[in-house]
Write a protein that binds this DNA or RNA. Structure first.
Lengths: 129, 129
DNA sequence: TTGACAAGTTAGCTCCCGCTAACTATAATG
DNA sequence: CATTATAGTTAGCGGGAGCTAACTTGTCAA
């Protein structure tokens, strides 16, 4: 079961929610992403059977190592890409939205290259004209 | 009928094929994209009814104004993003593949910002460290 | 003329991933 | 205790976009 863009989004959301609250349930994901409960329910089932998350009796969701790895990878892309776009003069909202889509479509190689460039340009400052 | 990523890819491919040969048929698209004839047939039908292409009696496909606008927009993104990634040290193949996916997910705002930055950095040269 | 190939279409399948409607199970509350 | 709210699940729909199998059509060469 290879992860789709959709699965990556769920994992990233679980990571983010976990930073904000002590536990994450399906309903929290549902509210955060604006998806219906059944949609989340199915996604959670798939991620669980794929070994990306665990769900305890109380319905609390936790990332496994595999899930955390994916979530952190995507989250890093999201953060850096957003920053970068903002530095280039894009408004926060647009930057975040775009980063949110691009983060799933960029290869490790390209992302590392961008990261290197951003780093070299003085902690991103050179990205602002 | 709003254009999906898939539709954009077909239009871009038609544009590119048109630069290489005098006419473009469904079969050419099929070979270029590696998709089956029925898949292309359906896509062509949708693009036609969406007003993005015209198909003459001989099966030759041409972009309408609307189709050309989309194709050129996507193609410009493709070209610039690929160049950029290559400048950052990414190999041609990876750069092109990534550009090919990102080109459909970036907003006009962000793309313009990147373009501006690339332009200012001395015709992309500053992108290479 | 006939037979073969090339191009395109039709029918129908699969997977992904949203959705609603409706049900279940568990608390919380009057 | 009965009611209501909350959380989750099941069943089934719809649209996007690939695929194969099989059919049609037109052209061209033996």
């Amino acid at each position: 079961m290879a992860l789709q863009e959709s699965g990556e989004m769920y994992l990233e959301t679980i990571l983010i929610l976990g930073k904000r609250r002590s536990f994450v349930r399906a309903i929290d994901i549902s509210e955060e992403m604006g998806y219906s409960k059944p949609s989340v329910s199915r996604a959670v089932g798939l991620l669980k059977s794929g070994g990306y998350i665990t769900v305890d009796d109380g319905g609390c969701i936790a990332l496994t190592e595999a899930g955390l790895a994916v979530a952190e990878k995507i989250y890093e892309r999201h953060t850096l890409l957003t920053e970068l776009l903002v530095c280039l003069g894009v408004d926060e909202k647009t930057a975040a939205d775009d980063a949110c889509r691009i983060e799933h479509h960029i290869s490790d190689k390209s992302f590392e290259a961008i990261k290197r460039h951003a780093g070299q340009s003085g902690e991103h400052k050179r990205w602002s004209k």
